[in-house]
């Protein structure tokens, strides 16, 4: 039993919820339901949908794979060095994505710090390619991985590592068999957050990978373009984004907060 919710708190909360829901409902009211099948069969829409899903899933896995070691390192560090490192790792989350995309160009562009060496060595050119889309998405998604996983690693009782060592497990085996499985739910949560961020990514993608239909034009970019040319198509694609995101949030709810 709890004390009664104060009435003004309840009223304000309900108003805010209505306010957040209004734009979404307005959008739903305008969706041309009858035309949806034909719109979604258009080539640039299917291309954007497939591209978005592939690149966001790939980016989420890459962000996880690269973010976990960083999270482990940061969870063991304290002091100024740790604070600076953590701030640098968090930057892509705070920066305007356009700035992130520009920074990626200076690093991985054809004349970028690493990009020219990469092209010389392997012939791989990242900007304006599918690889560029994935890189831009992973870049902005990684902070979510580091933040989420570092938090739960810090909350873990370090004596579990001692227990594993006392059973003869070396540091790597301890990490793989004990530590990471024990923070499994936040690894999954981190992956989903990263994927959600990647799916909605716009600024860094358009700056670094451009807006080439069928090649680098993801769903958000296609919606942006369609708003100028074919609003009904924009609405239909927005509907797809809303449904996919809502579906994931609902299936993952037990991972983030206890379901009631």
């Amino acid at each position: 039993m709890r004390t009664r919710l104060p009435r003004r708190v309840r009223i304000v909360a309900l108003l805010v919820i209505a306010l957040v829901a209004t734009p979404l409902i307005s959008l739903l009211l305008r969706v041309p339901w009858a035309r949806i099948p034909s719109i979604l069969r258009q080539e640039f829409v299917t291309d954007a949908l497939v591209l978005s899903l592939t690149s966001s899933v790939l980016a989420a896995f890459i962000a996880l794979f690269l973010g976990i070691p960083v999270a482990i390192l940061l969870s063991r560090l304290d002091g100024l060095f740790a604070s600076v490192t953590r701030a640098v790792m968090m930057l892509p989350m705070v920066l305007p994505p356009v700035v992130g995309g520009a920074a990626l160009l200076f690093a991985f562009g054809r004349r970028g710090t690493l990009g020219s060496a990469l092209e010389d060595a392997s012939g791989v050119v990242l900007p304006y390619s599918l690889g560029g889309v994935v890189l831009a998405n992973a870049f902005v998604a990684m902070p979510f991985v580091v933040l989420t996983i570092e938090g739960s690693l810090r909350g873990l009782d370090s004596r579990f590592e001692l227990a594993a060592a006392s059973l003869g497990a070396n540091e790597f085996r301890t990490m793989i068999k004990v530590v990471l499985p024990m923070v499994r739910s936040s690894v999954i949560a981190a992956g989903v957050l990263a994927w959600a961020r990647a799916l909605g990514e716009f600024g860094a993608t358009i700056t670094f990978a451009g807006n080439i239909p069928g090649k680098t034009q993801t769903l958000p970019l296609a919606v942006f373009v369609a708003m100028e040319t074919d609003q009904e198509a924009a609405l239909a694609m927005s509907l797809v984004l809303i449904l996919v995101s809502l579906g994931v949030l609902l299936t993952m709810r037990d991972r983030w907060w206890p379901a009631r």
Partner: peptide, 27 residues
């Protein structure tokens, strides 16, 4: 520590919560 050949039993057991009893015993 992991090569010292010393075992340790903790006051609260510290069993690995993501494993079954048997998996703990086989660790």
């Amino acid at each position: 520590p992991y090569r010292r050949n010393l075992g340790m039993v903790f006051d609260d057991g510290l069993l690995f919560p993501h494993m079954s009893v048997e998996q703990n015993l086989r660790f």
